[in-house]
Design a binder for these strands. Sequence first.
RNA 1: AGGGGCGUAGCUCAGUGGUAGAGCAGCGGCCUUUUAAGCCGAAGGUCGUGGGUUCGAUCCCCACCGCCCCUACCA
Length: 532
Amino acid sequence: MPFEPLDQYLQRQKKLAEIEARGYDAYPHRFDWTATPAELVEKYTPAGAAELEAAKPPVRVAGRILTLRLHGKAGFAHISGSGQRLQIYVKLDIVGSRAFELFRLLDLGDFVGVAGHLFRTKTGELTVWVSELTLLSKALLPLPEKWHGLSDVELRYRQRYLDLIANDRARGIFLRRAQIIRELRRFFDARGYIEVETPMMQPIAGGATARPFVTHHNTLDVDLYLRIAPELYLKRLVVGGLDRVYEINRNFRNEGISTAHNPEFTMLEFYQAYSDYHDLMALSEELFAHLAKQVTGSTIVKYGEYEVDFAMWQRISMREAICRYWPADAGPAPNVAELAAPGGPRAIAERYNVWAQTHNREPLPDLAGQTGGEITGLLFETVAESQLIQPTILYDFPTDISPLSKCRKDDPSLAERFEIFVAGMELGNAFSELNDPTEQERRFRQQVESGGEEVPREVDMDYIRALAHGMPPTAGEGIGIDRLTMLLTDSHSIREVILFPLLRPETPQEETAAGASNSGGHSPEPGSGGQK
RNA sequence: AGGGGCGUAGCUCAGUGGUAGAGCAGCGGCCUUUUAAGCCGAAGGUCGUGGGUUCGAUCCCCACCGCCCCUACCA
């Protein structure tokens, strides 16, 4: 099956045939190597030319050819392995005419193994003096342009492997992502948590408000939902005596795509028994500071035009945030007491909308039927969220929008819940878990009755039953790994930190061609061959 | 979903109402320490797709497709 670019594909196939005609295996099974290019570069960078000349360190090393410079009866190439380039020097006198002919048939992108020793060229570059050359795998399609790399964003996402080859930054992002996840595991493992995996396919998609994806199991003949959160299963485990659990895995939400949203995304969720949300505030601050330090070397992280310091947290209540970040020219800022008063949030929202309409701002969506707590949440998102640049713990969420949280003893309209904001992005969400089965069932029923696509159609009675068996006081938190990775890699689109972000599938060319001939309106000559 | 932008050689990009150019990659030749190697030569394009305006469209207009950005929902 040939691929575009066709001429180059065919050209390389021709070379492949020539190579095989000369008795070489283009796809051998193994090559014995002693070091990766990266290891050699690291180890011998300090070694000078004279030192190498004296020692002639023997090497066997393999990699992908990234550059190739032929000079008649000799040539240079760079091979790449483990993210580092190492130059090789192939000389007719040394390798012999048969191997040199092979060298001349190589293309960028081919994998080779070489044996020889290290030396430095005139210009001082560490290089392998090749005495043996082995083709390890023939590439039939070319690499991205070597100087500019691959910059077409769509191609970078669709053919991520090319992005990883051509762009060190892309490679670096995913190495760092792996490091972040490794450090997270280490952090929680060290604190006595156990890592678990809970269902991705769930009969009732609970634990968050979001539209789920639906799928179907044939043998059981049941519809299942891809999970929107692992929350309810993790808490079942706490009921079961796993007092500290965490899961790092995918959630799926059938909602919009943006620079901050991918339909499948990775969440860390963790739960610890005998704790409340105050404990998690402290733990979160420690976790983020530790992580930033481990991964970037500093708690101070550059993110676009901002510098955020994960060692400097502000804690602020949602109502305080609305008051503090109230637009300066939108009339007198509300105060916390006003927001707390019955009817207060609605009055303030209406005040905001009057201002928004005259200042070309998006007004709050229809307030009719919304509770005070819901309006408070909307006010926060509209007025304050994007301004929370420095690491912020935003607490005292309205109970109305926190169906899985305990309320505050002194004010049942507020939940023991906080979210973490950095650079205007929501990174985490935590609360003291509601463990009263009666109250939880009541809230679930209320949710189901209010309806909406983002709410389960039935109450998860199995979860209520689990709570009825008794759950210790527990605090839980979820952290968006993709966004966290964005922050720690200075990436400004979630697609930069997801290896294969969801894109519309490529339409086959036949399809567009068929569409063209249908809508074209000119009738082909009757009996003309070749058309389907 | 709404608004804006982009789509020209395999890649990175110029360009014009009279059917196109550069660099790199690829091909042929020369070159035994080069490194964005160099030099010589040849080749490569239904200018995203379809329709319209026009004597004539890659360029102007419309629709569609794809991607990106902003806004809306969400993490």
